[in-house]
Amino acid sequence: MKKQVFLIGTGQMAVDYLAVLKNQNCDTTVIGRGKESAIKFESQTGVKPFVGGLQEYINNNSLSTNAYVIIATGTEALMPSLLLVLKAGAYKVLIEKPAAISIEELIENEEKLKPYSDKVFVAYNRRFYASVIEAQKMIEEDGGLKTIHFEFTEWAHTIEPLHKAPGVKENWFFANSTHVVDLAFYLAGRADDWKAFSKAGKLKWHSKTNFTGAGFTEKGVLFSYLSNWESAGRWAVELLTEKRRIYLKPMENIFVQEKGTVAVVEHKFDDSLDLQFKPGLYRQTLAFLNEVNNGILKIDEHIKNSKQIYSKIIGF
Score class of each variant (00 low, 15 high):
residue 52 G to V: 15
residue 77 A to V: 01
residue 51 V to Y: 12
residue 35 K to P: 10
residue 30 V to E: 00
residue 80 P to L: 06
residue 104 E to K: 08
residue 37 S to R: 10
residue 41 F to K: 01
residue 42 E to L: 04
residue 65 T to H: 09
residue 103 I to K: 02
residue 105 E to P: 02
residue 23 N to T: 13
residue 51 V to H: 14
residue 61 N to K: 00
residue 82 L to P: 01
residue 70 I to C: 01
residue 55 Q to V: 15
residue 79 M to Y: 02
residue 47 V to Q: 13
residue 97 K to A: 00
residue 64 S to G: 06
residue 28 T to K: 00
residue 30 V to P: 01
residue 35 K to M: 15
residue 35 K to D: 13
residue 66 N to I: 00
residue 65 T to L: 03
residue 48 K to H: 15
residue 94 L to M: 13
residue 30 V to K: 01
residue 62 S to Y: 09
residue 79 M to Q: 00
residue 85 V to C: 02
residue 43 S to W: 10
residue 77 A to L: 12
residue 56 E to C: 13
residue 53 G to F: 13
residue 102 S to L: 12
residue 49 P to F: 09
residue 54 L to K: 03
residue 42 E to I: 08
residue 101 I to L: 07
residue 92 K to S: 02
residue 98 P to Y: 12
residue 54 L to Q: 09
residue 106 L to A: 05
residue 78 L to I: 04
residue 35 K to R: 12
residue 55 Q to L: 10
residue 83 L to P: 08
residue 37 S to K: 11
residue 29 T to S: 07
residue 94 L to Y: 02
residue 75 T to H: 01
residue 84 L to M: 13
residue 81 S to I: 08
residue 36 E to N: 05
residue 106 L to T: 00
residue 70 I to H: 06
residue 22 K to C: 12
residue 67 A to E: 07
residue 58 I to Q: 12
residue 92 K to Y: 05
residue 104 E to A: 04
residue 43 S to T: 13
residue 57 Y to N: 10
residue 63 L to A: 10
residue 36 E to C: 08
residue 31 I to W: 09
residue 63 L to G: 02
residue 55 Q to K: 15
residue 96 E to S: 07
residue 44 Q to C: 14
residue 73 T to H: 03
residue 46 G to P: 09
residue 40 K to E: 09
residue 87 K to M: 08
residue 30 V to H: 03
residue 71 I to L: 05
residue 53 G to Q: 15
residue 21 L to M: 10
residue 51 V to N: 12
residue 80 P to Q: 09
residue 92 K to T: 02
residue 85 V to A: 12
residue 23 N to K: 01
residue 49 P to Q: 03
residue 26 C to I: 06
residue 59 N to T: 11
residue 22 K to L: 07
residue 29 T to W: 05
residue 88 A to R: 06
residue 28 T to C: 02
residue 78 L to D: 08
residue 31 I to L: 10
residue 96 E to K: 01
residue 68 Y to R: 05
residue 26 C to S: 07
residue 84 L to Q: 05
residue 59 N to Q: 08
residue 66 N to M: 14
residue 33 R to P: 02
residue 47 V to A: 11
residue 80 P to A: 08
residue 91 Y to E: 02
residue 30 V to S: 00
residue 37 S to A: 13
residue 39 I to Q: 11
residue 103 I to Q: 04
residue 48 K to L: 09
residue 106 L to M: 04
residue 66 N to P: 04
residue 93 V to N: 01
residue 86 L to H: 07
